[in-house]
């Protein structure tokens, strides 16, 4: 019998694997798009990297070519949640996000850097841009959390008004996070996911998505036509 370091046998795992696979068959999948916004250099990409890859790097390059990172959560017995975490890629940093970036987002995290107070002043600008460009179907605002990042650095002072700001602006919650020490990132994302799931259940808007076409070869409705042309 092969025994792994932590004492779980291979056979045990294979049987768990089977039951997982069977369980997963009936799971419904929810795909949620979250946008992670905030000033340049506040650690958005590090947070996404920590959350999706479980790693931290101090030298993240601006992510070339990637729209979003994927995190799959086995939420409960019946639900799997796929989080699409959209990074602003650093390049749209001069307050110029496209509507395309925000389209269909159901939650947002606004990140600032505790060691650079000016990035906190920008939070409001990001929030205004967000509120202007994206809503839930039916017009309700999307849930937002604020992440006070680089919480591992000791010299930080917390902006005193943050609690009031959250109350005044319908912010779900705020967290002191650290991508380096993996502090509160899971908590913040789970908070957002919870809100997104609740909205998903509560807001059964008659959103008519039938007949919406995305241009992939799969959505072509007649393969024969393709050949004859």
């Amino acid at each position: 019998m092969t025994s792994l370091s932590n004492g779980i046998t291979r056979e045990k795992i294979l049987s768990i694997n089977d039951s997982l696979r069977i369980n997963n068959l009936h799971k419904r999948e929810l795909n949620f798009k979250f946008v992670i916004i905030g000033d340049f250099g506040v650690g958005k990409t590090s947070i996404i990297g920590r959350y999706t890859e479980g790693q931290f790097s101090t030298s993240y390059k601006i992510t070339i070519g990637a729209d979003f990172a994927l995190k799959t959560l086995e939420w409960d017995e019946d639900t799997r949640v796929n989080l699409h975490l959209w990074d602003i890629a650093g390049h749209e940093r001069f307050g110029s996000l496209t509507g395309v970036f925000y389209r269909h987002a159901v939650a947002a995290a606004i990140v600032f850097d505790l060691t650079r107070p000016e990035t906190y002043s920008s939070v409001e600008k990001w929030l205004i841009d967000l509120r202007r460009k994206v809503h839930l179907p039916g017009g309700l605002p999307i849930p937002v959390v604020i992440l006070a990042n680089k919480g591992d650095v000791t010299v930080t002072t917390l902006p005193s008004q943050i609690e009031d700001f959250c109350k005044a602006n319908n912010i779900l919650s705020w967290f002191i996070t650290s991508a380096k020490n993996n502090l509160n990132i899971d908590e913040a994302m789970i908070r957002l996911t919870n809100a997104a799931i609740q909205n998903h259940h509560n807001l059964q808007f008659p959103l008519i998505t039938d007949d919406i076409i995305s241009l992939t070869d799969a959505s072509e409705n007649n393969e024969k036509m393709k050949k004859c042309c």
Binding site: I64, A89, H91, F94, S96
Partner: peptide, 13 residues
């Protein structure tokens, strides 16, 4: 958006 994802810097206003 594709331009931005591939490193293009966008600055409006």
């Amino acid at each position: 958006r594709l331009s931005a994802v591939f490193g293009g810097i966008f600055a409006l206003s």
